[in-house]
């Protein structure tokens, strides 16, 4: 099973992929409306916001957890 290079989500069905295109390496949640992949800063900010919204973490903890996660992902290797 493919996993999204930008967030690590497993991608199995068509609707998991950006624009429903199974040849893409990133998921529907990591794509902009035109189908391009979100930038590092955009993705980082949206993950931080999401983590705070759904888990109530302190901003600095959320930032570090997100950075830690993004560091492992192929799309962002060069950003660290």
């Amino acid at each position: 099973m493919k996993t999204c290079i930008a967030c690590g989500m497993p991608m199995k069905k068509e609707s998991d992929f950006a624009m429903g295109d199974t040849s893409k390496d990133y998921c529907v949640y990591c794509a902009n409306s035109d189908g391009t992949m979100q930038s590092f800063e955009e993705k980082k900010q949206s993950l931080i916001n999401f983590t705070i919204k759904t888990q109530g973490l302190d901003q600095s903890v959320a930032e570090k957890a997100v950075e830690n996660m993004m560091r492992q992902l192929p799309a962002w290797k060069e950003c660290f």
Binding site: F50, T51, L57, V61, K64, A65, N68, M69
Partner: peptide, 9 residues
């Protein structure tokens, strides 16, 4: 701990 947070995410 960060990995644990990401598991919960």
């Amino acid at each position: 701990k960060y990995v644990f947070i990401n598991i919960q995410s």
